[in-house]
């Protein structure tokens, strides 16, 4: 069973993402901030990281860069899931090390398809 680290500061969004992932048989590790997520990623070694961008403190982009810089997590697939929907945002997100850039709103199918595409 794949472990997915979900990084999201809004409890409702977190609930939704967790529900989608658990329904599709994934083990969800949740982190409410990017800093928390970075620690959990190094400690628990998730198979996939799904992160929001706009969060208080550290942003999702910074999280991407930090994950890529750390030897433990430099190869973990990252899916960015955000409401920032401009082309420049997508471009930047992918440059910061994300494998997939998804914009909200999305369906369960969208999410699972994105996860399957990066899941080894």
């Amino acid at each position: 069973m794949s472990k997915v680290l979900v990084v999201e500061d809004a409890p409702s969004e977190m609930e939704l993402l967790s529900h989608y992932l658990q329904q599709s048989g994934y083990l969800v590790i949740s982190a409410m901030s990017a800093k928390d997520a970075l620690n959990k990623a190094i400690e628990l070694k998730p198979d996939i990281v799904v992160t929001d961008v706009i969060m208080p403190g550290m942003s999702g982009f910074t999280l991407c860069r930090s994950l890529r810089r750390h030897p433990e997590t430099e190869n973990v697939p990252i899916i960015i899931c955000t409401s920032k929907n401009q082309e420049i945002d997508r471009f930047w997100g992918l440059r910061q090390g994300a494998n997939v850039y998804m914009t909200k709103p999305f369906t369960q199918d969208d999410l699972i398809r994105a996860i399957k595409s990066v899941e080894g």
Partner: peptide, 10 residues
């Protein structure tokens, strides 16, 4: 660190 917001400035 700068706050990454919704707009293009983000």
């Amino acid at each position: 660190r700068a706050m990454v917001g919704e707009g293009e400035i983000g």
